[in-house]
Every structure is written in C-alpha cells, then in structure tokens.
Simulated assay, not measured.
Amino acid sequence: MFVRTVYATGDPAKIDTAVRALNTEGRDLLEDRPGYRGSGVFVDRDLGKLLAVSWWETEEGRRNSDEVMRERRAGLLEPFAGTVSVHNYEVAVFHPVQQPRAGGGLRVSRLEFDPADTDLLADTFRATVVPRLDPLRGLARASLFVDRERGSGMVCSLFVDRDSLAASRAIQAAARHEGAAKAHVAVVGLEEFEVVHADVHPY
C-alpha cells in the first residue's frame, strides 16, 4: 500500500473547523477515488498541529487522487492552517492488532536514512521493533512508511487510549534506540497526537 500525509500547523483555537471539514467533505472526496483504502486524522490541540493520512492500494491511485485533493486541500484546512506540507510514502510494514478508537493516541517517529538502507530498515522494524511493541497494552497498530528516493520515513504507533500511549513511552524508547542502531537510521522527530479517526482496509 501507499500513503499520503498532510501535516498542517495553525491556530489551535481553529483546529476543529479543519477537523470537521476533513471528516465530512474531505472524506467524501477520498472515498470517491479508485484505490482508496482508508484515512486517519490526528491532532495536537494544544500546539495546533494536524496530521491527515490517506491510504491507497496503488501508487497510481494515490497520485491520481492528489490531482483532485490538491485543488480542494486549502479550502478544507481554512481558516486553521498557516503551514501545510504534503509527503508521499510506501507502506513498508503494516502490523494491525486491533481497531483504533477515537480519543486514542498516535506516536510518530520521523526518520532519515541512506536510501540504500531502506530494505534493512523494513527488515529491522519487522524483526526487532514489532516484537517489542506487540505485547504493549492498548497497541492498535504499528506501521512503517518509507520514501525510498529521499531516505525519509515515519514510524506510526497507534494506541486505543491515551493512558496506553503514555505507558508505552519507555518501552518504545528502548525499541526505537535498538532499531535505529541496527538499521542505521537517525530519528529526527518525535510527536504524539490524539486520534480523531483511523480507518484502513488493506484488502
């Protein structure tokens, strides 16, 4: 599968306007596109950050959908967004455990690596990191997104509630340290978000 992420920052007081637009008109636009497999919206209401993720069966489906969404994106995010960045990734690892829930938590680790080490990263995440995360209370899903050309990626760990997210920090920190060393990656960002919704149907 393939994903597109939209990362927006702006006035925290206006973030719910963007959330409502993405969950109604935005989702309707996505669902009409061939190859659509789901989406998620995640927020940091305190700082004014919003992360939207859409999932696609093929790279072509994702690319074609962006032609429509590019024209509508600014309108959906107004008046909240002051900055918007869009990135495309391949889903290298998708490990579902249970259905995520609204009000749950998402932890994002942003990665940089030598593009030649992309497969090493995927293998390490699958063999080393996932087994460390799997027993964590409340884990809903763990995913690894990669951009093979740019050497960048994201690890996304979803938990069904915020208490489970908080309780996992030390164990995931140890797994992140071990995995980064084995896969020769640099962790360049670490963020946490509230789950507004997170639906994906890979098959």
Rank of each mutant, 00 (worst) to 15 (best):
R27M: 10
A8E: 05
D119H: 12
P96F: 07
P131M: 12
E59F: 04
R126L: 14
L133D: 01
F113P: 01
N64I: 02
H197R: 13
D16L: 08
V155W: 12
H87I: 03
Y89D: 03
K182H: 08
W55H: 13
S65A: 15
L30G: 03
N23L: 13
N64T: 13
A180C: 07
L136R: 12
T5C: 06
N23V: 08
L50C: 06
G82M: 13
F159P: 09
E191N: 08
L51D: 00
P79V: 12
A81T: 12
F193K: 07
Q98Y: 00
R148I: 11
K14R: 15
R101A: 15
F145N: 12
R107E: 13
H95K: 11
V86G: 01
N88T: 09
Y7H: 08
G151N: 05
A186L: 06
R150G: 11
L106Y: 07
E57L: 10
V129P: 01
L22W: 09
Q99Y: 06
L111G: 10
P131W: 09
F113Q: 03
A140E: 03
V185P: 05
A127V: 06
D199Y: 01
A186M: 10
L144W: 04
L76W: 10
D16F: 04
F125P: 00
V108M: 09
V68T: 15
V91C: 02
